[in-house]
Structure formats: structure tokens, C-alpha cells
Design a protein around this nucleic acid. Structure first.
Length: 505
RNA sequence: GUGGCUAUGGUGUAGUGGUUAACACAGCGGUUUGUGGUACCGUUAACUCGAGUUCAAUUCUCGAUAGCCACCCCA
């Protein structure tokens, strides 16, 4: 039986460590990976929340696949010639001699699971939602990490263009509900047959011009001709206009499919652009491909997400022939950094509304119990029983932005009362200890009511302005943030905000 | 993977070839031992690592590491 190798923890080299002045070595995290700290969690939860909401709205069930798969799952699915498989995968041999890989994307594993569990026998399409970390060994940059988080939707077993369009819509909805404006870039890569034709045509067109192309394009010509259309070098730009277009090489069926998708997008009034440069780096795509670009990023600096149809993948991974499928993935890291960049408000992970403060030992014991009682009754309550002075406790209450602080000292213990302090006005009232729950319910209800009124008031004025469908898109682009913000906040208003989400972690 | 730029307390920034490396914010403690959001005082805390040049390096040079930017590619 193979024994694990002895782990050297104290190499003289300082790789992965930083020496502190006391001579101890502080360990640091691995290149391209990072901690997501408590104060940043609200962004991730907001994204996750919307992703899950859209999933359930459209009937996509959550699936969790292992982070490790046999290397073949990705090698066969993504394509051996792709950058991802060629040089970006975290692949290693385990002690049993199997080649394993940290998943670099989500689709292949979902398809593997679909096949393995015989889901072909369920009602088609089978619709999946996933969320979690992916790993690629690329050179890190902002918005590019070696461990990054993605969520995505996959629908397997359906070929209708309505599915493509609906998936495109779902991804766009996610971004929109988060208050992010995005433009969809769409293209069709055709089926393998038309793609071969197109590749031939491209080669025929570019071959004679080889010497005039930039260095990377000369490489592309040999390795991946489709990427020639992607080049931003000026010297190559001039050839692009005359270059063959994939759309001209689509066969009847692919063309019809693509037209339908476009029709649906038009009908849904989605902001899209036909972009023949969208090629996607994974071999399994066919027909429809798309990406979401942030509306303010012009050249699509970093796509927020993308996806497409992958009719051949199920077969490639050993499933039934001709099983159609379509899906998309969105990058959570990039969405989060956009939210922060645009200073979009997201709700706190936990917003306490009541703070329980105490003075003196007897009071501390009493509030300990009171706190539990309130918490179990569903009040959002916070405390600092490890601090003894009132000033500090009020400071904390203030930082936590609670609405009420309940103060119990010697006097209150004796009288059987509680001092209720309204943190906004500083007004304090004495309340009977036994009536505190109903009293708090009443006060908080009133406060929520007031907040809601304040919130909805300006919205009412906006509605009467009729918007015709035609002008809507351009006009709404400016409003997206405001409007989306509102809906978003509102959907969080309820008491059960993240109640379910937390258990997933 | 290739090329470029950067590296000072927890964070954001000053600054210097030579005694105590400055400021702001945050943290902790106090100014009324029963009262917060605005004040005041105190206090904690840093020159990424290694090698070289030098009498002397946080400062100059090289290397490592990390971050950022471009290419590549994508999320």
C-alpha cells in the first residue's frame, strides 16, 4: 500500500511564506487563489441568490458534481487541442495511479453525470443548475484567477432553438436583476459539417496571405483557424472584412436554427449583437454560441459569461448519439467585481434589527436568556455579552445599524422592565419585560411599514410614462440600474432572506 | 506561457544611502465605573524574501515571490 510522502513544511526557501519580524514564517495563499472574507460575502451571496432564483424560476434543478474528475472527462469533452486542456488544467496522478483533474469548467461533468445516471430516461430536456469553484492554471490578472467561481445552467436532450434563446435570456436576466447592463454577443458555429467547410474556406483565403499576417495569426492558421477572426492586430484587420463568414457556410438546418434563435431574441427585445468573432475556446460547441459583455466595457475586455449549444458532447462522452444540449456559464468573480466597481448596493448577509445590551452580572444573565428567546422567535438580534460597559455596547449597536437597543441594568432587573432605545432618534421608553416580544413586533412592523412607503413613493411617479416597445430598449438602458436595484432590494426584503442559502455552504 | 510596471503597519498613502521611517483610516484603551452615531488623548502595528555593491541598503543592482497591465485566452 502506498504511503503518503513525508511532507516538508519548513524548506529554507520562502516560497509560499513570508517572514514576519519575529522570525516566524507566515504562510500565504497559493498564486492566483484568494480568500473571500466575511465582509465581502454579501456580494457573493447576492450573486448566488439571483442565480438560484433564476434557476428555480425556469425549472432548473441544482446539481453538485465532484471538483475532481478523471482527466478523460475533460480531455474528451473540451477537446485535446484547446488551450484549456493543453496547458491550463490542474492534472495529477493520485496514489492509485489514476489521472485526475481539478475541473476547469462545469459542463463536461454535468454531462458525465447525465450519462452515468441514465437521465436520458427522464423527461427531456433535463435541466441543471450548478455553482462552484473551477480551476485553470493561467497567469493571474484582475478578473482572472486560478480558482474562480462559476454558476451555470445546462439543459440536455432538447434541440429546439427556443431553448437556446431561453438560456440566453436566463443569463441576461441574472445580470439584469443584479443591476448590471450587458450586451449579448451571438454567433453560430454551425454543426461539425459546416464548420469543416468553413475552416477549409478560411484556410484557402488566408494561406496566400500568410507572410502578411502577424506572428500569432501565423500560428493560428495552423492550430486553430477559427481564431484568425479574433485578431486585433491592425495588420490583420484589413483581411477580416473580406474573409469568409461562417454564416455563409451554414447548411440549411443550422441556418434555420440560428434564424429562429435570433427571432426569439428580437421578440424578447434583448440587447444583442451578431458577432462573428465569438468562437469560444471549447471544442464541444456547435450552432449557437454567445457571450455576455458588460455594456460599459466596449471591446468585451472580459466576458462576464458565455455559453452555447453542444449537440455533440453527450456522444463524445459515451452517451447516446445525437443527444442535443445547450448551456451557459457566468463568472461570479467578474460579476462581483462589476458590482463593486459600479457601487451597486447589495444587502448585508445579516442585518440585525435589535441589539441587546446589559449592565451588571444579574442583567447579563437575564439578557442572555432574553437574547435566546428573541432569536428563537425569529427576531434579527445581536449582542456583545463579552463587553461590560454600556458605551462600548452602544457603539457596537450603532455600527451594526440596528433599529432598537434593549438595555437591561440593575434597575431594570429589579423593576422587571426593559429600556427600549430607538437608535435613530435616541428616544427611550420603559417596557414591561414580559411584554417585550409583542412590543418589539409592533415597533418593527411599524418601522418596516415606514421604510416601504419611503421606498415605493418615487417609483409610482415613474410608471405613468408610457413606453412603447420600440423606444424601450435604448431608453431603459439608463434606467436599468435604478429599476433593477429596486426590484433586487425588494426581493430581499422578506425575513427569510438567506435562510436557505446558508446551509449550502 | 511571453513581455512590461509595481512591492513601506490591517487598509490607503508619504519619505530617506547613515541616529526615534511620517500621515490618514481602521483596531485597542481612556476622557463621565448607566448611553452610540460628530470631539479629544493615549496605544498597537510596516520597509516582501534572498544575494550583491558599500564603512553603511528600506533606499542602488540582480534574482526569487506576489500583484497589476498587455499578449494569449477566457469566467
Amino acid at each position: 500500500m502506498p504511503r503518503p510522502k513525508k511532507i516538508e513544511t519548513d524548506k529554507s526557501s520562502l516560497i509560499g511564506a513570508k517572514k514576519s519580524k519575529k522570525g516566524r514564517k507566515e504562510l500565504i495563499n497559493v498564486t492566483g487563489m484568494r480568500d473571500i472574507l466575511p465582509q465581502d460575502q454579501k456580494y457573493w451571496q447576492a450573486v448566488s441568490h439571483v442565480a438560484q432564483k433564476i434557476a428555480t424560476d425556469y425549472g432548473y434543478g441544482k446539481i453538485e458534481t465532484p471538483i475532481l474528475e478523471y482527466t478523460d472527462v475533460f480531455a474528451r469533452g473540451i477537446g485535446k487541442q484547446t488551450d484549456i486542456v493543453e496547458k491550463e488544467m490542474y492534472t495529477f496522478e493520485d496514489s492509485g495511479g489514476d489521472s485526475l483533474t481539478l475541473r476547469p469548467e462545469g459542463t463536461a461533468a454535468v454531462v458525465r453525470s447525465y450519462i452515468q445516471h441514465g437521465m436520458i430516461n427522464q423527461i427531456q430536456p433535463v435541466k441543471f443548475f450548478y455553482e462552484g469553484p473551477m480551476f485553470r492554471h493561467e497567469k493571474p490578472q484582475s478578473g482572472r484567477y486560478r480558482q474562480f467561481y462559476q454558476f451555470g445552467y445546462e439543459a440536455i436532450g432538447e434541440s429546439s432553438p427556443a431553448l437556446d434563446a431561453q438560456l440566453i435570456l436566463m443569463g441576461w436576466n441574472c445580470l439584469n436583476e443584479l443591476g448590471l447592463e450587458s450586451v449579448i454577443q451571438v454567433n453560430s458555429m454551425g454543426c461539425p459539417t459546416c464548420r469543416e467547410e468553413f475552416k477549409k474556406a478560411l484556410l484557402k483565403y488566408y494561406k496566400p496571405k500568410t507572410k502578411q499576417l502577424c506572428e500569432s495569426c501565423q500560428r493560428r492558421l495552423v492550430k486553430n483557424p477559427l481564431r484568425l477572426l479574433d485578431c486585433k492586430e491592425e495588420s490583420c484587420q484589413k483581411f477580416k472584412d473580406e474573409a469568409p463568414q461562417i454564416l455563409d457556410y451554414l447548411d440549411e438546418e443550422c441556418k434555420k436554427h440560428f434564424m429562429k434563435v435570433i427571432e426569439y431574441l428580437d421578440e424578447l427585445d434583448l440587447p444583442y449583437v451578431l458577432n462573428s468573432g465569438i468562437v469560444r475556446g471549447l471544442d464541444y460547441y456547435s450552432k449557437t454560441v454567445f457571450e455576455y459583455w458588460s455594456a460599459d466595457d466596449g471591446e468585451g475586455k472580459s466576458a462576464l459569461g458565455g455559453g452555447g449549444r453542444y449537440d455533440g458532447l453527450v456522444e463524445m462522452l459515451g452517451g447516446r448519439d445525437n443527444t442535443p444540449a445547450c448551456g451557459l456559464g457566468l463568472g461570479m468573480d467578474r460579476i462581483v467585481s462589476k458590482l463593486r466597481e459600479k457601487e451597486i448596493d447589495v444587502p448585508e448577509v445579516y442585518q440585525a434589527e435589535i441589539f441587546v445590551a446589559q449592565l451588571g452580572e444579574a442583567a447579563k444573565k437575564k439578557t442572555f436568556v432574553l437574547y435566546e428567546k428573541l432569536r428563537r422567535r425569529g427576531f434579527k438580534v445581536s449582542q456583545a455579552f463579552y463587553k461590560d460597559n454600556l458605551k462600548t455596547q452602544l457603539e457596537m449597536a450603532n455600527k451594526l445599524k440596528v433599529k432598537f437597543t434593549l438595555i437591561i441594568g440593575q434597575k431594570e432587573v429589579g423593576e422587571g422592565t426593559v429600556l427600549v432605545r430607538d437608535m435613530e432618534g435616541g428616544i427611550q421608553e420603559v417596557v414591561d419585560f414580559n411584554k417585550i416580544e409583542s412590543d418589539m413586533t409592533k415597533r418593527l412592523d411599524k418601522w418596516h411599514q415606514q421604510k416601504l412607503e419611503k421606498f415605493t413613493a418615487p417609483e409610482v411617479e415613474d410608471i405613468p410614462e408610457g413606453k412603447t416597445k420600440g423606444e424601450k430598449r435604448a431608453k431603459d438602458l439608463d434606467d436599468f440600474n435604478g429599476e433593477a436595484d429596486f426590484n433586487f432590494e425588494d426581493s430581499y426584503g422578506g425575513d427569510t432572506m438567506f435562510a436557505g442559502d446558508n446551509e449550502d455552504y
